[in-house]
Design a protein around this nucleic acid. Sequence first.
DNA 1: CGAATGATTGAATAGCATCAAGGACCGTGG
DNA 2: CCACGGTCCTTGATGCTATTCAATCATTCG
Lengths: 241, 241
Amino acid sequence: MPRSTGRGAHDERLPPMDIKAVPMTANGIRASLLTDAERRELVAIAVPVGVRAGATLYRQGDRADAVYGLAQGVVKALRRTGASKRTVAAFLFPHDLIGLSEAGRYVNSVVAVTPATLYRMPVTALERMLRHNAELEYHFLCKVCHELREAQRHAVVLGRKSAVTRVAMFLAMLERREHANAGGIHLAMTRSDVAGYVALSLESVSRTFRALERDGIIAVRDRHHVRVLDRKRFDRLVSGA
Amino acid sequence: MPRSTGRGAHDERLPPMDIKAVPMTANGIRASLLTDAERRELVAIAVPVGVRAGATLYRQGDRADAVYGLAQGVVKALRRTGASKRTVAAFLFPHDLIGLSEAGRYVNSVVAVTPATLYRMPVTALERMLRHNAELEYHFLCKVCHELREAQRHAVVLGRKSAVTRVAMFLAMLERREHANAGGIHLAMTRSDVAGYVALSLESVSRTFRALERDGIIAVRDRHHVRVLDRKRFDRLVSGA
DNA sequence: CGAATGATTGAATAGCATCAAGGACCGTGG
DNA sequence: CCACGGTCCTTGATGCTATTCAATCATTCG
């Protein structure tokens, strides 16, 4: 398994550096947070990085010397819980920030779920930039607030006791975060990753997908594509009936 | 149940406005984040508020027009999950920030667990201040990162399947966050609140405390005071044996 | 002191984890 | 194009653990 960076054939036609979230006081529109000027400023310290699926970007406990902006692809944040067990702390999508640290060390490991391109920003340079550009920093603040809300939602999911509810809430989350197009939900991750995120056994996740399909609530095209058929009952599950 | 504010006998001898967390690049020392100058600036827009135990500071869905700094006491953030069910999204302690919102609405309800004093900061004024004081804003950013880590830890707790592990991890969390003095752990909240946080039934929490006591791992003085007796086995539970 | 809230304990049930085996899919190389 | 290996996924049978329902006990506060 490749260890890390390795800037592949990604160099031409890079998607732009960007961060998106709901500003604190706005009306719920997911807007681009960065102005052109800010993007330019960030690009000055941001190095594009391409990784293959399965590659580890960094490991829990490593010295945290960079923050990443995800431009393309899906990655997962893993956390060791006890020896030899790992849970999925979060899935991260384009326009998300990556690199949460504590006392100079990363608190999660980050692994690419799909091929991904990121912008690597050294913390020292970033911190210097933020500390004298309040406007730019404000956008980072909004983004972190967004990730905080997302983490709380995750906790809500894990609080539900029924397997169907957990899985349905997870699908609803994907629907919101990835392109919520009418073409159905795209699951970039494996069943095992889903299990790690919703804290169920792999087998239970599998059975639950089956059950949802049998009941006509969702249609499972293949492992990576799901569509909601009965929106009414689906929503009832999500709200935890 | 009293609805909200009501500035009681708290006005004299107020604890100072402050925020504490681990700065991103520091060496893990829980430091005061605010300089004296910043404290003075914040106090200009911060109104002290005292609430009784059980009082609701604000409700999920309310227009989010203020952020609060908790100065004294313990409060809980509740989230509605389905009709008529509530989970505890977080417990908040002195020096924590309160008032997470999305699209101008609070995402949690906040209720005082003990009598509490807070500093109320209108978002508009705060936002204006942050947007042109990068240094101050940086401290807020660090604080939100801290709460993000805390929320992820919460998710880790909820991911563990065994009741003893969940409860032990909860106690460990309290030990870290409240005064981690050798005098034992102080539980300001009810068993029912604990159950809401670790996502177990009230009865299971009760039984689990009992079991931990019977096994000589903890001593339960009364409902609000617990002491770890067998640190070795306790830590083994926390790491999820 | 008495009512209301909070906590404990017991017995029965439901639901998920676990163990175990088989089947589908993917990428590789012939 | 097809065969092959590995990974990922599905399905079944069993046991364990937390939930639930129900009743009793303790504590706090008026």
